[in-house]
């Protein structure tokens, strides 16, 4: 099957903001870099909040209420999405 995604395989294609009941959301669409073979991602990404380019010391936690991460194969016509929320 496809190999795990690595350096340069994925790019941010779209960031969609949303807000509900005091919580802000950003849904990030990740697509294959043009010409890249399909590859897989698994689980939650590591997430760090930066302030002026440096870690801001903000704790981040996975939230299973937004869906459980499965292994996904990213294809040229099939992107992967990550939703970030903060309140």
């Amino acid at each position: 099957g496809p190999a795990p995604c690595g350096h340069g395989d994925l790019v941010v294609a779209l960031v969609e903001p949303d807000e509900a009941r005091g919580t802000a959301y950003r849904t990030v669409t990740l697509r294959l870099t043009r010409g890249t073979e399909p590859c897989t991602v698994r689980g939650y990404p590591e997430t760090i909040v930066l302030a002026k380019g440096r870690p801001a010391g903000v704790a981040t936690v996975p939230d299973q209420t937004l869906g459980r991460p499965e292994q996904l194969t990213v294809l040229p016509d099939r992107s992967a999405k990550v939703t970030l929320a903060w309140s």
């Binding site: 690595g6 950003r26 997430t47």
Partner: peptide, 20 residues
């Protein structure tokens, strides 16, 4: 000028500017 950095894989960091 806050941002969020996601590691989708150990060698695949993606930076999202314009947070906060």
């Amino acid at each position: 000028n806050d941002a969020v950095r996601l590691w989708v894989a150990p060698d695949l960091p993606l930076e999202l500017p314009g947070f906060g």
